[in-house]
Computed example of a mutant assay.
Amino acid sequence: MPTQTKPMFKVSDQPILVMLVALPLVAWGLERLVESAQPDLRLMGSVSSVADSLSSMGQRTPDVVVVDLDGEQGAESLGLLHSKTSARILAVTGSPHEVLHDEAVIAGARGVVNKRDVDAAQNLLKAIEKVHRGEIWIDRNATSRIFLELVRRRSSQVQHPEKQKIASLTRRELQALTTLASDPGSSSREVAEKLFISENTLRNHVTSIYSKLGLANRVDLYAFAQRNGLT
């Protein structure tokens, strides 16, 4: 993503306070981009995880938090951020997969900027301004897909209580659930390796799965998966 692109807008007399959530290499480029847009934007800080962003906000909340979905936290972390802060959330990713983009919006992002777009840098600056004003940064096709997905989830909630719980899982949590249930004897390290994530990330997924499904342990998880054809 280019880092020396001047914004084409004047937002207000007060700069938009921006916090970045990205791994160091990506954060470096995003920092340069936000700094190039001064005085319209002001970089409030840069951290590597959503958890770090929440702990570092302190008494002052940013106007917009830009989250790189290509970091380990993924789209599922946006739900936590959305529930804990009044800041507007904007996601960036290099992934072309529409499912990831849609999940980010459903989780609380006001829009998704693709880092691979030709005008990615300028688009990000424009998107920051728009979400700060209360608008969204998604195209019409995405709006339609998200609406249909929300209808599908609502329908599953009406049909069966356990289907409702399954629909509350993120894509990665569902992958973790099916992997765990498919091999009850596997260790956490083996499951994490299959999913290409760290054991710490797997533990976070499992904690969230237990909470959402109302489970106490791995035996309960296996039984739940068996009942719902998830093994």
Rank of each mutant, 00 (worst) to 15 (best):
Thr5Tyr: 07
Thr5Ser: 09
Thr5Leu: 13
Thr5Lys: 11
Phe9Ala: 10
Lys10Glu: 14
Lys10Cys: 09
Pro15Gln: 08
Val18Leu: 06
Val21Met: 03
Ala22Tyr: 05
Leu23Trp: 02
Leu30Phe: 11
Leu30Met: 14
Glu31Gln: 15
Glu31His: 08
Arg32Lys: 14
Val34Phe: 07
Val34Ala: 09
Ser36Val: 01
Pro39Cys: 11
Asp40Ser: 13
Leu43Thr: 05
Met44Ser: 11
Gly45Trp: 04
Asp52Glu: 15
Ser53Gly: 04
Ser55Glu: 11
Ser56Val: 10
Gln59Arg: 12
Thr61Pro: 03
Pro62Arg: 03
Val64Trp: 03
Val66Asp: 08
Asp68Arg: 04
Leu69Thr: 03
Asp70Ser: 12
Gly71Lys: 00
Gln73Phe: 12
Ala75Phe: 01
Leu78Trp: 04
Leu78Met: 10
Leu81His: 02
Lys84Leu: 07
Arg88Met: 09
Ile89Val: 11
Leu90Thr: 04
Ala91Val: 08
Thr93His: 05
Thr93Val: 10
Gly94Asp: 04
Ser95Lys: 02
Ser95Asn: 13
Ser95Gln: 11
Pro96Phe: 08
His97Leu: 10
Leu100Lys: 12
Leu100Asp: 04
Ala104Thr: 05
Val105Glu: 00
Val105Asp: 00
Val105Asn: 02
Val105His: 01
Ile106Tyr: 03
Ile106Pro: 00
Ala107Gln: 09
Val112Asn: 03
Val113Trp: 02
Lys115Asn: 06
Asp117His: 13
Asp117Gln: 12
Ala120Leu: 07
Asn123Pro: 01
Asn123Val: 00
Leu124Gly: 02
Leu124Thr: 04
Leu124Arg: 02
Ala127Cys: 07
His132Lys: 15
Ile136Phe: 13
Trp137Ile: 05
Trp137Ser: 06
Ile138Gly: 00
Ile138Glu: 03
Asn141Thr: 14
Arg145Ile: 05
Arg145Gly: 06
Ile146Cys: 09
Ile146Phe: 10
Leu148Met: 12
Leu150Val: 13
Ser156Asn: 12
Val158Lys: 13
Gln159Leu: 15
Gln159Lys: 15
Pro161Gln: 08
Pro161Ile: 09
Pro161Asn: 07
Lys163Met: 11
Gln164Arg: 13
Ile166Cys: 07
Ala167Lys: 01
Ala167Ser: 15
Leu169His: 07
Thr170Ser: 15
Glu173Gly: 10
Ala176Asn: 03
Leu177Lys: 01
Leu180Met: 15
Asp183Thr: 14
Ser186Arg: 03
Ser187Leu: 06
Ser188Met: 12
Arg189Gln: 14
Val191Gln: 01
Asn200Tyr: 11
Asn200Trp: 07
Thr201Asp: 00
Asn204Gly: 13
Ser211Arg: 15
Ser211Ile: 01
Lys212Cys: 08
Gly214Gln: 12
Tyr222Trp: 11
Tyr222Ile: 14
Phe224Asp: 07
Ala225Thr: 05
Asn228Ala: 01
Gly229Val: 02
